[in-house]
Lab assay of single mutants.
Amino acid sequence: AQEYRALYDYTAQNPDELDLSAGDILEVILEGEDGWWTVERNGQRGFVPGSYLEKL
């Protein structure tokens, strides 16, 4: 798994998404072809927009 940093804040719109704060460090589990990536942070897993992340 790769570590990424959130570039922007994101507020989850659905229960299966995660909130992001700019600067958060996340582990990317799966890069979805639809642009939604499965990530894990502090034991929580959910979808976030891949375009909001940069690889560390």
Rank of each mutant, 00 (worst) to 15 (best):
L56E: 07
L7H: 03
D16S: 14
E31P: 09
V39M: 03
S51N: 14
I25Q: 05
L18A: 03
I29A: 09
P15S: 12
R45H: 04
Q2S: 11
G43R: 07
L26H: 01
G46V: 02
E33A: 10
D19M: 06
E33G: 10
V28I: 06
G23F: 01
G43K: 11
I25D: 05
A6D: 00
G50D: 04
R45D: 04
Q44M: 09
T38V: 10
D9N: 15
R5V: 11
Q44C: 07
E3C: 08
Y8W: 10
L56R: 12
Y4L: 03
V48H: 00
K55W: 05
R45L: 05
Y4N: 04
P49E: 02
S21N: 10
D16A: 11
G23W: 01
E31H: 07
N14W: 11
L26A: 06
N42T: 08
G23P: 00
L56W: 08
L18S: 02
V48C: 07
G23Q: 04
G23H: 02
L56I: 15
Y4H: 07
I25A: 08
A22Y: 06
Y52W: 07
L18R: 02
D16N: 15
T38A: 10
D34P: 03
S21M: 14
R5H: 05
G43S: 07
Q44N: 09
E27C: 14
K55I: 08
P49A: 02
A1P: 09
L30H: 14
P15W: 05
W37A: 09
D34K: 06
L26V: 14
D9A: 11
S21G: 09
L30R: 15
G32K: 12
A6T: 04
G46N: 01
V39I: 05
E31S: 10
Y52C: 11
E3R: 10
R41P: 01
E33L: 09
Y52L: 09
D19T: 09
Q13Y: 04
A6C: 11
W37K: 06
I29Q: 07
P49R: 07
L30I: 13
E33D: 12
L30A: 14
P49Q: 04
S51R: 12
A22K: 13
E33R: 11
W37S: 07
T11R: 10
S21D: 12
T11Y: 10
D34M: 05
Y4F: 09
Q13K: 15
A12S: 08
E3M: 14
L18C: 06
G23Y: 01
Q44H: 11
V28N: 04
K55L: 09
A12V: 01
Q44V: 14
T11N: 06
A1Y: 15
I29D: 05
W36S: 08
V39K: 00
Q13T: 12
P49C: 03
K55R: 09
Y10H: 06
Q44D: 11
Q2P: 06
E17H: 09
E54T: 08
V28Q: 04
N42L: 09
Q2T: 13
D9R: 06
G23N: 07
N14H: 13
S21W: 09
D9H: 06
Y52P: 01
E40P: 01
Y8K: 15
E3T: 11
L18T: 03
Y4S: 08
V39G: 04
P49W: 04
T38S: 11
A6L: 03
E31Q: 12
W37P: 04
A12T: 04
Y10W: 07
N42K: 09
D34E: 09
E17K: 02
Y8G: 07
Y8D: 10
L30V: 15
V28R: 06
L56C: 05
A6W: 00
F47L: 15
L20R: 01
L20G: 00
G46T: 00
E27Y: 10
W37M: 12
A22C: 13
F47N: 13
Q44Y: 08
R41I: 06
E54V: 06
E40N: 15
A22M: 07
R41W: 03
R41H: 11
A12R: 08
E54Q: 09
E27K: 15
Y52S: 09
Y52V: 10
V48P: 01
A22Q: 10
E27G: 08
Y4I: 06
G32R: 14
D9S: 12
N14L: 08
I25S: 08
E40K: 12
D16I: 05
Q2F: 15
E17G: 05
D9G: 08
E17P: 00
W37H: 06
D19R: 03
L30S: 15
G32Q: 10
D34Q: 09
Y10S: 01
G32N: 13
W36C: 07
R45P: 02
Q13W: 03
Y8F: 13
P15V: 10
E17R: 02
A1V: 09
G46F: 04
E3F: 06
A22S: 10
T11M: 10
Y4D: 00
N42I: 04
G35S: 05
L7M: 15
S51A: 14
A1Q: 02
D24P: 00
E3V: 09
G43Y: 04
L18W: 02
I29C: 10
G32M: 06
G23T: 00
A1D: 12
E17T: 03
W36R: 15
D16H: 15
A6E: 00
E3I: 15
P15L: 09
Q13S: 11
L18V: 09
L26I: 14
S21T: 15
E31L: 05
I29F: 10
Y8R: 14
Q13C: 12
G35W: 03
Y8V: 08
G35Y: 06
L20W: 00
L30P: 02
G32Y: 05
E33F: 06
Q2Y: 10
S51P: 08
R45C: 05
E27L: 14
V39L: 01
P49M: 06
L7W: 03
T11G: 08
G43I: 01
L30E: 15
L20C: 07
S51T: 14
V28C: 08
W37L: 11
A1L: 04
E3A: 07
D19E: 07
A6G: 02
V39T: 03
W36Q: 08
S51K: 14
Y10G: 01
G43C: 06
E54S: 08
L26G: 07
L53F: 09
D19P: 05
G46W: 03
D9F: 03
Q2C: 12
S51E: 13
G23D: 07
G35T: 04
L30T: 15
G43E: 08
G43L: 05
R45W: 03
L7C: 09
L56M: 10
N14D: 02
D24R: 00
L7P: 01
G46Y: 06
G35Q: 07
D24H: 03
E40V: 12
A22G: 05
L20P: 00
T11F: 06
E17I: 01
L18G: 01
I25H: 15
L26N: 01
D19W: 02
Q13G: 10
E3P: 09
A22P: 06
Y10V: 00
Y8Q: 15
L18K: 01
N42P: 04
A12E: 00
T38H: 07
Q13P: 01
G46S: 01
S51M: 11
Q13F: 03
Y10D: 02
L20A: 02
N14E: 09
L26K: 00
D16C: 12
S21I: 14
I25P: 05
I25V: 13
Q2H: 07
D16F: 15
E31G: 05
I29Y: 07
E17Q: 15
V39W: 00
I29H: 06
Y10K: 02
Y4G: 07
Y4C: 05
L7Q: 09
V39F: 01
E3Y: 15
Q44T: 12
W36E: 05
E31M: 09
N42M: 06
T38N: 06
I29W: 07
G35F: 03
